[in-house]
Amino acid sequence: MSRGRAVLASRVGLIVGSIALLEILCRTGVINPLTLLAPSQMAVAMVDLLASGKVTPDIERTFSTVAIAFALSVVVGTAAGAVLHAMPRLRRALDPLLASYYAVPFFVFYPVLVAFFGLNEMPLVAIGFAAAMVAMAISTLNGLDRVPPVLIKVARMHRLGRLRTLFLVVVPAAAASLMTGMKLALAYAFISIIAGEFILSGRGLGYQIAYAYNSFDNKTMYGLMLFVLLVATAMNSLLHMWEQRLLRRRARA
């Protein structure tokens, strides 16, 4: 276990070291303070900003948009994955589309979506949903592909019905992949919604960063950037830890 600890220590060292290096470079003026704030100043700016409550409506807006898009994409993506798994012919035909979905910049559909839904958060929900749903569907497919056929035989030996086979055998066997799918879905929903806000919308965290940039408000910009990075990393790490726990159990010698 000492190697594991060494890896962990080195990782922490790497991250802390990078931040410290950045801090020193900024403080000594090697990096122009107009270009980049020192990490400590970013943190102060972030805390001030959050405490002031100025961006609270934007935070609520972005998070609620992400939450709706994420929830929808998990439900629809899982169902779509299951349907595609049951229909191999359709799956084969859709394969190139599934493989290249992430090359499609979904937010270019924003104007169309505004025409459909009006100027509210629904166009952004749709953009986040489109990016996240496919990731969820693909992970579901992977998970279902990897359910060992022998476990289905065991279910039949125990004379389990379809529903009980699904919930007692298939879902637990595919749990790690479903978890991976949720992790990706959350990340993609967050990425594309922030991007959508940044480029197109008039509200939300992404928009506030763009606005701060355009009005040369470095403090707000870097404070918000740091906040977004921290939130994304925290969400990802949490789901990653959960996924690893499932994977460890799943691993076979």
């Binding site: 890896v7 990782r11 990340a187 967050f190 990425i191 950037m225």
Partner: peptide, 23 residues
């Protein structure tokens, strides 16, 4: 050491880094 760090970087909304890139 670096793999999880890279995986975390992969999931951040890189568009927020855009102002920095421009600067």
């Amino acid at each position: 050491v670096t793999e999880p760090v890279l995986a975390a970087l992969y999931t951040i909304p890189k568009v927020t880094l855009y102002p920095l890139i421009l600067l």
